[in-house]
């Protein structure tokens, strides 16, 4: 699972959960898959992402020095930061780990790079 995908996932479908976001991420095993850096792509995708989850992912991936807690303005002019965001969002690949619902503690395992978000019938 790339951390760009992580940015969209929520546990709000669980009965009684209000926001379910961001999910608490644990990485047990990860890989880095190099991909071509396209600054425009990163810049334009950012408004669609939730910065708190971008920052949260950076913390778990131990890249906090690279990513500020608050989204800086005029990020398009900061190619160094865009490069770091590219690495965080599109190159780090979580192979094993888990996502945890912030409200109920329900754990969704990540196995072989695929998060299992499937809920039981009685949970929805």
């Amino acid at each position: 699972m790339k951390l760009s995908t992580y940015n969209f996932l929520t546990s709000m479908a669980i009965k009684g959960v209000k926001v379910g976001f961001p999910l608490k991420l644990t990485i047990n095993k990860k890989d880095v898959v190099e991909s071509e850096f396209n600054p425009t792509f990163v810049e334009r995708i950012l408004p669609k992402l939730d910065w708190s989850a971008v920052y949260g992912a950076a913390q778990v991936a131990e890249l906090t020095e690279d990513i500020p807690a608050v989204q800086p303005e005029n990020i398009g002019e900061n190619e160094v930061l865009l490069q770091k965001l590219h690495h965080l969002l599109f190159e780090i690949d979580v192979l094993e780990g888990q996502l945890e619902c912030p409200e109920t503690g329900r754990v969704f395992p990540i196995t072989d790079g695929i998060p299992n978000m499937l809920l039981n019938e009685d949970e929805v």
Partner: peptide
């Protein structure tokens, strides 16, 4: 996944994705 796609597992009746994000 083997082809390098971004995928996760869920049911189409409960899609675990933020509202108004796509």
């Amino acid at each position: 996944r083997r082809k390098g796609q971004n995928v996760f597992r869920c049911d189409c009746l409960s899609v675990p994705v933020r509202s108004s994000s796509i």
